[in-house]
Design a protein around this nucleic acid. Structure first.
Lengths: 154, 154
DNA sequence: CTTTCTTTGACTATTACTGACCTTAGCTTT
DNA sequence: AAAGCTAAGGTCAGTAATAGTCAAAGAAAG
């Protein structure tokens, strides 16, 4: 955690955790002021870190009394959810999609930080030198590895 | 220990040993500067010495505040270990991959130095005169031998 | 002498951050 | 109402800061 974006991300997540409702409302201008940055930096953080794929919903309103609301989607059974997430992996999976899924599963404590890194490492190694079909291999690898980890839990 | 790459390798391993968390974060540019070499030299060292097969996980981020993190995988977790081994021994295994795996296992005291040589010897003997399918045989042989050794320990 | 390993550098890719300009909602004044 | 003002937030493209890739040259080993 060292860039401004990382700090802002962490701060929003902290707010979310301490909120009863799994959602927080914030003022873009206020926040930018708190972190001494331009307002659009907040949009940058929201659009790169709080995506739907990672389980967040962002709503906003402009004009007087405008706001940004960030919600964390709760799913009661994280394993069920994880499995359906896995099944939604099609025959191809690009790197960014993979990262989002892994980040999401880690957020929900379905996988640990070490497991995340390991999966990333394995995929990187296997996919590495390929010129074609990376996304196909990545999809199948990620699916198998996650199934394997989840199997060994239940 | 005499090439630059060796020194860089040793340095990273020193950092790892003195770290509490089994992982260190470094700046590629900074490191290149410290060793007075081009940045890509760092990539060379990482990709030849800190591979998954040897038990290392390398992550990185580009852009502002970018970094390279090198982690040393703990083998205390049996499925983690199983995954990385199964993954690294595919249906084929060349000599270099085998050496990497053996070096890793010896490093972690899963096999002794004598067992390493024994495996090497057996494989050499069996694979020796073959003209085709060496890598296939090697893969299955090493898998079985390691399986045998690990079974006999637990 | 051939093969493998090391080192380098030019080119590429990714991420963070900023600022100028645009859009929307509510309120106030005619 | 309609027009205009004010107070939000949104977009996008450009710049800077990092890291990655690849091929070729050089060095070392067999």
């Amino acid at each position: 955690m060292s860039t401004l974006a990382d700090h802002i991300e962490a701060h929003i997540k902290r707010m979310l955790r301490s909120s009863q409702t799994n959602s927080v409302e914030l003022s873009r201008a206020q926040m930018a002021d708190d972190f001494s940055c331009v307002p659009s930096q907040i949009n940058y953080v929201l659009s790169t870190r709080f995506t739907l794929e990672r389980g967040y919903i962002v709503e906003s309103r402009r004009g007087g009394g405008g706001y940004i609301r960030v919600g964390h989607v709760q799913v009661d059974n994280s394993y069920t959810h994880a499995i359906s997430l896995l099944q939604s992996i099609g025959s191809e999976l690009d790197d960014k999609q993979m990262e989002n899924i892994l980040a999401h599963l880690k957020d929900r404590h379905v996988i640990s930080s070490g497991e995340l890194q390991l999966i990333r490492g394995i995929v990187q190694q296997e996919v590495g030198g390929m010129s074609q079909g990376k996304n196909v291999l990545r999809a199948s690898l990620v699916r198998s590895l996650l199934f394997f980890i989840m199997e060994s839990r239940s």
